[in-house]
Structure formats: C-alpha cells, structure tokens
Amino acid sequence: MSADADIPALELIDVRAGYGRIEVLHTVDLVVPPGSVVALLGPNGAGKTTTLAVASGRVVPTAGCVHVGGRHVNGLPPEAFVRGGVCSIPEGRGVFANLTVRDNLKLWSHGTSRSLSEIEDMVFARFPRLKERRRQLAGTMSGGEQQMLAVARAVVADAGLLLLDEISMGLAPRIVAELYELVAQLAADGLAILLVEQFAQTALAVADHAAIMTSGVIRAVGDPVDIAAELAAAYLGGVA
C-alpha cells in the first residue's frame, strides 16, 4: 500500500492508552510522514513499546485518534491493521518458536498476495542462512537467526508502515549491523518506518526524524542531530 505524498503513514493524535487501570501513554502526538524513518527514543518505561502496540492495534487507546494512511482505525483488531498495511515486528523474537521456519513463512502469506514460494525466494535471497534452516523449528535457531526471520517479514509484507521494536535486543553487534542494513534498504525503497531502539546512535544513523519520549509523553521531535544532543538530558531525567 502506498500513501499519497502528503498523507502521513501514521498519525497519533492526543492518544491515551494503558493496561487496565494503569495509564501508560498520557496524550501522545506522533506523526510518521510517508516514506520516512522515525526513531522513537527514551528510557525504560517511557511508553515506547505501548506506542507501537497502539499503532499496531494490540492496545486500544482510551482517548485520541489513530490514523493509518489517513484512515481512522481506532478499536479495530490487529488483523485489520495488517490489512491496512501495518507490519509490526514485536519486541523479543517475533517468531513462532514451535513451528518450522517454513511454517512461519507460510503464515505470512495471510497479509499479502504473495504465494509461499514467492515469499521463500524473497526471504532466502535476503538471508541465505534461513534457507539452510527452513525445516528446523524456529525456536531452536540462534537468537540472531530468529530475529532475522522475524524482521524478514518486513521484506515480504506489502506494508506502507513498518513498526520495529528493539530488533537489536540481545544480539551481537555484527548481526545488529546486518539487520540495520536491511532497515536502511527498506527505507530507501520508500517504506515508512517507526522504530524503537535502545542503541540510540544506531537508530539515529538511519532515521530522518527522531522523537524523545519520557513518562508517557513525547518530549521533543526533530532532526536526528538535534535530538542526539538532547538525549542525555532526557535519559537523566531532565525535561527537554
């Protein structure tokens, strides 16, 4: 799905959300312009993951609007978000551990018009290592290979917006670099990406815009270079 030039890929307007009676996001405003990469940074517990959960339909906001590609999608189930062109790679390993690599790939064909063999060709071309492992249970692969498999979904999904949550978590720097190479390439192809990352420098290197979030509120939005300067203050508890 490709959006018009002026319609944002994702727009969160005055969003409040949380779990049960605990509110995590207190009025969050965030825009991901079409075809651009936005890095969402902030300390632990700031609400970054919750923001992504709202953007993928896993958490329904208690107030405010969620617009995907200009359409109001509040309250729709996550599978409707997928049909609307959102591809979300959740935190941790976003793979089905007890299914083989092939079965994992098979499931991806739900959201797209591609056939299994087409998906396999695309994924294996990108990550040859997964081809050797295609009959193996996904959960028995190394952490890096599992994350490759998880992130590979972004390659085959016909998405207009990609949500990445800490894809570097627990991985060797070499694998992180490999994954970010893919992210940069997807961005170059015109995909809009919202990414959450602990390694701020890695994220800022690929981002067009950056946002700092603390305590459920977006504190600052701007150019990656400017944001990098404000980061220390945000992490150390100062209000930007």
Partner: peptide, 10 residues
C-alpha cells in the same frame, strides 16, 4: 505459540 503474533500476521 503466540496468539498475539498471529494477529500481527493478519
């Protein structure tokens, strides 16, 4: 395995 992830694959 993970109902939430199934939802994310559509």
């Amino acid at each position: 395995d993970d109902p939430g992830l199934v939802a994310l694959t559509g």
